[in-house]
Amino acid sequence: MSAHGIAALPRNYELFYEALSGRLPQLSRELAALGLNPPQDSLDALGLKHHLVSHAALAADRARAAAQETLAGMASKLKLALAQKQTFKTELDRFTGRLADDPVVGLSEFADDAARLRETAGHLLNQENALQHALEASAQRMAEFEEDLAESRRSLTRDLATGLPNRLALTAKLDSLLETEQTDQPIALLLVFVDGLREMAEHHGGTVASKALAKLSALFRKSIKKNDFVARVGQQEFAFVCRDVSVENAEAIARRLCQSVQDVKVTLPGRAHTAETLSLAAGITIAQPASTSADLMTEAELALAGARDGAGILSYSAALGRGKTYGQNAA
């Protein structure tokens, strides 16, 4: 980055990482088009355009500043409109006052006063129309700001490569469920590790790994019920939150996931008849009445560590330390 004259800012590091990873080809092309010594504003524009996580705060700051500018403009126009109304009221008061003082005022004087009153009313009407247009334009800009802020918030809780929720979103989901779910509707957390993703990226490049991730994310979305939840929580780790399931149900879900992942075939560039395969290990835990999201993550991680040691699928049990185990190819 220093060789290209780019400041060592955290958001610039993420921008270059995402461009070099190959996950966002359009970003890579746009960054290359900036050439040497690109302005920071141009770099920030790319990060904002592609909704990078590190640029979320910058997007919020810019939206806030733009909103303040819009509100200041509205306030200025409103002040001018109020001044025009006050002028109109003053002219009207003077006109009615003269009529009260001299009911037989001359026709020419009456016409002059009426003309001034009409001119003031015209200015007031023009200002009111301008204010209406300004309010409509401001409302549109505010809606755009809100959408930008909403997208920034989504980027904080979304995995960029798959579009799935990320670890932050998973924690929020668990916290919400643990606060509201009935104890007779148990919550299961399945933490899974997809073995082979990293090797696929190292041996065949980011494009192949991205293809595999796309297949996996689509598969995992279709594998859950409507009210369940799936997130990507690491480079090769995904988490599933399933409601109203027993340990046995969760283990059956894990076995189906293992088989589904083994069935995924990722073809290699220029080798239509050659495909890479993946495998999956799963750690399972069931929420207890006093469980927290941190408790569940710790238990699932311990179970997953045991599963990756050879069990394939491992259910965590605080009482037993290690619960039921199944071989990697268990049916």
Rank of each mutant, 00 (worst) to 15 (best):
G5L: 09
I6A: 03
L9F: 11
F16H: 04
G22W: 06
Q26G: 06
L27V: 05
L27G: 02
A33S: 15
L34N: 05
G35A: 15
L43D: 05
L52I: 13
L52E: 06
A59S: 07
A63D: 05
A65S: 09
A67I: 05
Q68V: 05
A75N: 08
L78D: 07
T90W: 07
R94M: 13
R94I: 02
G97C: 06
D102F: 06
P103F: 10
V104C: 12
A111G: 02
D112G: 01
R118S: 06
L124E: 01
L125N: 03
N126Y: 03
N126M: 06
N126T: 07
A130K: 01
A137N: 13
A137I: 02
A139M: 14
A143M: 15
E146N: 10
E147D: 11
E151A: 11
E151Q: 11
L156C: 12
G163W: 00
L178G: 01
L178R: 00
L178I: 03
G206Y: 03
K211W: 00
K211V: 08
A212R: 01
L213C: 02
A214V: 03
I224P: 00
K225V: 01
D228R: 02
F229W: 02
V233I: 13
G234T: 03
Q235T: 14
E237R: 05
V241R: 00
R255N: 15
Q259A: 13
Q259H: 13
V264L: 08
A272T: 12
H273G: 09
H273W: 09
E276A: 10
L280R: 08
A282D: 03
S291W: 11
T292I: 04
A300V: 05
E301T: 07
A311V: 04
L314K: 04
Y316S: 04
R322E: 10
T325G: 11
